Simulated scan of single mutants.
Amino acid sequence: MYILYYLRILALPWGNEDTQKILDILKKYKINVTFFMTGGWVESYPDDVKAIKAAGHDLGNHSEHHKHMPQLSNSSICDELNSVTEKVEKLTNTKMCLFRPPYGDYNNALIEQAKNCGYYTIQWDVDSLDWKNYGVEPIVNTVLNHKSLRNGSIILMHNGAKYTAQALPKVIEGLQEKGFQIVPISKLIYKDNYHMEPDGSQVKDGE
């Protein structure tokens, strides 16, 4: 079984205190994931962006200003995405193609325009709720016992949340014990001949 896994990196004030810890944990378990980052975070922590790329992880786009994207014009949507991509490309020579809408706020028009701008829109279905800062065990239990956890799930965790780095090893080990293989989003998503369901999941056309 495969599970899509990503860590979303937010703009300030979340900072980068745990970035290296998280990278070290992922290296220990020989796992690559997807980091989504805003333009502000890229500007503030360029060395971390380079380190994430060097470690073999996906670099994902979380927009320039973390706005409610469906409220923007088509041209503004592309500006919000391309601005981050240009910054990351200058640092890493990598062109982003994955986009995670801020707040999980999306509609058909946003998905279509993001596609027109060259991005695959991603949504999660398992929220670790680590942003609540409610402790290690609650994070682990929330993920491993989540009603939506299944083959192809996308798990949301946050760089900078108080207990994420501490909970991550137990989350990884628990998922592996359940038979899941953790992979970055780019390794599993459909890129052609698919459609999006209302819950954000991809389905092959004809299924």
Rank of each mutant, 00 (worst) to 15 (best):
T164P: 11
I189D: 12
D192L: 13
K204R: 10
E207S: 15
G179D: 00
D192F: 14
T164A: 14
D205M: 05
E177P: 13
A167V: 02
E173W: 07
D192N: 15
P198H: 00
K191R: 10
A165G: 05
S201L: 09
I185V: 15
I182A: 06
Q166H: 13
A167Q: 03
T164H: 12
Y190S: 12
Y194E: 00
Y163W: 10
K191T: 09
D192W: 00
Y190R: 14
E207Y: 14
Y194R: 04
E177F: 06
L175P: 04
I185A: 08
L168T: 03
E197P: 12
L168Y: 01
E197V: 14
K204D: 09
F180R: 06
H195N: 07
G174I: 02
L175Y: 10
G206K: 03
G206H: 03
A167G: 03
P169E: 02
E207T: 15
Q176T: 09
V171C: 13
P169F: 02
H195M: 08
S201T: 13
Q181A: 15
S201E: 13
A165Y: 04
Q202K: 05
K178D: 05
D205G: 10
I172E: 05
L175D: 12
K187M: 09
K204Q: 01
E177W: 07
A167F: 02
D205H: 03
E173L: 02
I189F: 08
G200C: 06
Q202N: 12
I172T: 07
L188E: 09
P169R: 10
D205R: 00
G206I: 01
P184M: 11
E173S: 10
P184K: 07
Q181S: 15
Y190L: 15
Q181W: 08
P169Y: 00
G174W: 08
N193C: 05
Q202D: 13
Q176P: 13
L175K: 10
D192T: 14
G179V: 05
E173C: 04
G206M: 04
P198W: 05
G174L: 07
K187E: 15
V183C: 04
Q202M: 14
L175W: 07
H195Q: 00
Y163C: 06
G174K: 01
P184W: 08
E173A: 12
D199M: 06
N193W: 01
Q202A: 13
I189T: 12
Q166V: 04
S186N: 07
M196E: 11
S186C: 03
D199H: 15
G179K: 08
P184A: 09
I189K: 07
L168M: 03
I172D: 05
G174N: 10
G200W: 07
I185N: 10
T164C: 14
Q181P: 06
N193Y: 06
D205E: 08
V171P: 12
Y163R: 07
H195D: 01
L175T: 02
Q176I: 15
K187T: 14
D192E: 15
Q166L: 11
Y190C: 01
F180I: 04
D199R: 02
I185G: 08
Q202L: 11
V183F: 10
K187W: 15
K178Y: 03
Q176A: 10
N193P: 04
